[in-house]
């Protein structure tokens, strides 16, 4: 198999590779390939960095207070708005 063909074969498993979800034999094969293929090393590094950037920046958006208030109101839960808010810290949401 040509080197380029091998790179193409690996494309579909790179995502699982960075998750550490591939079986050992396949991981070893990819590790061996990476020792000689700079192109695939760059693709894997940048794929890993892509996922990690999204995970780092993800939780930024908070639900605005007025959205929460209207939600409680439409569910007829206004009386719990204050109580539930006090529990918010412990709920971890």
């Amino acid at each position: 198999m040509s080197e380029h063909g091998h790179c193409r074969d690996l494309l579909g498993v790179l995502s699982e590779f960075i998750d550490g979800a591939l079986e050992q034999q396949l991981c070893d094969e990819i590790d061996r390939h990476l020792q000689t293929c700079e192109k695939c090393r760059v693709v894997i590094d940048s794929l890993r960095k892509t996922v990690s950037l999204y995970q780092q920046t993800a939780p930024a958006s908070e639900m605005p207070d007025d959205v929460r208030e209207r939600l409680f109101h439409c569910l007829d839960l206004d009386e719990f708005l204050h109580t539930a808010g006090q529990e918010q810290g412990s709920a971890g949401a």
Binding site: S61, F72, L75, L77, F80, A93
Partner: peptide, 18 residues
């Protein structure tokens, strides 16, 4: 039970909205 449902809403509304 409305109080329990309110707790559920409080716990999950943020992630569902996001």
């Amino acid at each position: 039970d409305r109080a329990e449902f309110a707790r559920l809403v409080e716990a999950y509304s943020g992630v569902i909205y996001r």
